[in-house]
């Protein structure tokens, strides 16, 4: 089980600039579907990458699904040379996304967020209509059920 609280606090306490997307964002908006991992879009500046490294280092990030013993260095070079990382940590599963399909990178997405109060922190979360837009654009069959739920939530919100 992924401890979303622990992961979010690790990132927030280290001052990482990030936006919550994916299933946890959907849950924050009211979706009741479970999710296995925390998805975030992180800002790819040198300072933020350093904060990201420091935030996750104590919980031992490793490539999810990779065979044990594979050389994997959790350092700035790894992050700079890559973009999106699916990781397993002591606190569970986290996907670090430099950008998302149709949503773009942190800078583009940051104008489509809301602030939510989670575990004593004010965190950026992708707005519900933007979450629907990017999921629609991705066009993945596995998202159809989630999209139906998100669009219902949007309708409920607009109808008051």
């Amino acid at each position: 089980m992924t401890d979303f609280r622990r992961l979010l606090l690790a990132l927030a306490d280290a001052g990482v600039e990030f936006i919550v997307v994916g299933g946890v964002a959907a849950a924050a908006h009211g979706a009741v579907r479970t999710t296995l991992d925390l998805d975030i879009v992180y800002r790819r500046t040198a300072d933020n990458i350093r904060r990201l490294i420091a935030a996750l280092l104590p919980i031992h990030p490793y490539l999810r699904g990779a065979p044990p013993g594979l050389p994997f260095l959790w350092d700035e070079r790894t992050i700079v040379n890559g973009l999106n990382f699916t990781l397993i940590t002591d606190a569970g599963e986290i996907d670090l996304l430099g950008e998302i399909i149709a949503g773009g990178d942190f800078e583009r997405l940051s104008s489509h967020t809301i602030e939510v109060e989670l575990f004593g922190k004010r965190l950026s979360c992708i707005a519900l209509d933007e979450l629907i837009r990017v999921k629609r654009a991705a066009g993945r069959p596995k998202d159809f059920e989630a999209l139906a739920e998100l669009e219902k939530l949007l309708e409920l919100g607009r109808s008051g």
């Binding site: 946890v24 009211g30 739920e149 409920l156």
Partner: peptide, 16 residues
């Protein structure tokens, strides 16, 4: 969904 919307975002995440 209506029940979920009565909770705070934090309560919703703790629920999942």
């Amino acid at each position: 969904l209506r029940e979920s919307l009565k909770r705070t975002p934090e309560q919703r995440i703790l629920a999942i």
